[in-house]
């Protein structure tokens, strides 16, 4: 089932002197439960493409359709609400709320979606168990390692049962052991929860595990390889 479509998407940044074509005529489809990596050299447009898919930035032209909804048709307030209910984010620097515990960080999105307390607690425990942090539910981010924080971030991204998760270089700040654990968890969740994962990455370990690898160069898709799962 198709959950995300990009049709002739362009993103041009107009600086005072030069126009930067960050994303150039990208057309892509993503299906349910894909585990896809967007790769390419620095400045190739990976993060910009991820921002466009996540509705954090709007394309200069072209259409981005998520589950039948054209993002360009949404008002800013609707777009925020749309992100809350449809897209999960994992950031390179974890970006957890430092004053909240692991449990509260995961619960936070569900609280904004107005889940009942009981449903929130059940889902939180289930997710923190899935990322192997059921023993650390009451720890604040400052008491967790980088790898553990990123696992909480993954649990938070999954909490609201989004259509897909966008992960911007999720392993960039992790050592190899922590990165391997995180990737294993994400692959397992992708399989069990049937949620699409889209990574932007330089990390060859992520590329190796991905079922689909999209390569960008100067904002264009130069290859789109689908592998056997």
């Amino acid at each position: 089932m198709k959950i995300l479509e990009l049709k002739n998407v362009h993103k041009i940044y107009n600086s005072t002197e030069v126009k930067v074509h960050a994303v150039n005529n990208v057309t892509l489809d993503f299906m349910e439960a894909e585990f896809a990596a967007i790769v390419g050299p620095s400045g190739s447009g990976k993060t910009t493409l991820l921002n466009l898919i996540g509705g954090l930035d709007m394309p200069t032209s072209g259409e981005i359709i998520i589950n039948g909804t054209d993002l360009s048709k949404l008002k800013p307030s609707q777009l925020i609400d749309f992100r809350l209910h449809n897209i999960g984010f994992v950031f390179q620097s974890y970006n957890l709320i430092p004053v909240l515990t692991a449990k509260e960080n995961v619960e936070f999105i569900m609280a904004m979606q107005k889940w009942s307390r009981q449903a929130r607690e059940e889902r939180t425990f289930e997710l923190l168990k899935a990322v192997g942090l059921e023993e650390r539910i009451n720890s604040r981010p400052s008491k967790l390692s980088g790898g553990q924080q990123q696992r909480v971030a993954v649990a938070r991204a999954l909490a609201s049962k989004p259509k897909f998760i966008l992960a911007d270089e999720p392993t960039a700040n992790l050592d190899s052991k922590a990165a391997a654990i995180l990737l294993e968890i994400m692959e397992k969740l992708n399989h069990e929860e049937k949620i699409t994962f889209i990574f932007s990455t330089h990390d060859p370990r992520v590329v190796k595990m991905a079922h689909r690898v999209i390569t960008l160069e100067d904002g264009r898709v130069v290859s789109d390889d689908v592998r056997e799962a």
Partner: peptide, 16 residues
């Protein structure tokens, strides 16, 4: 600033 950006990115609306 970054934390607020993250909150808005994950769906915290202006009212919140």
């Amino acid at each position: 600033t970054r934390e607020l950006g993250m909150l808005m990115a994950i769906g915290m609306n202006r009212k919140r």
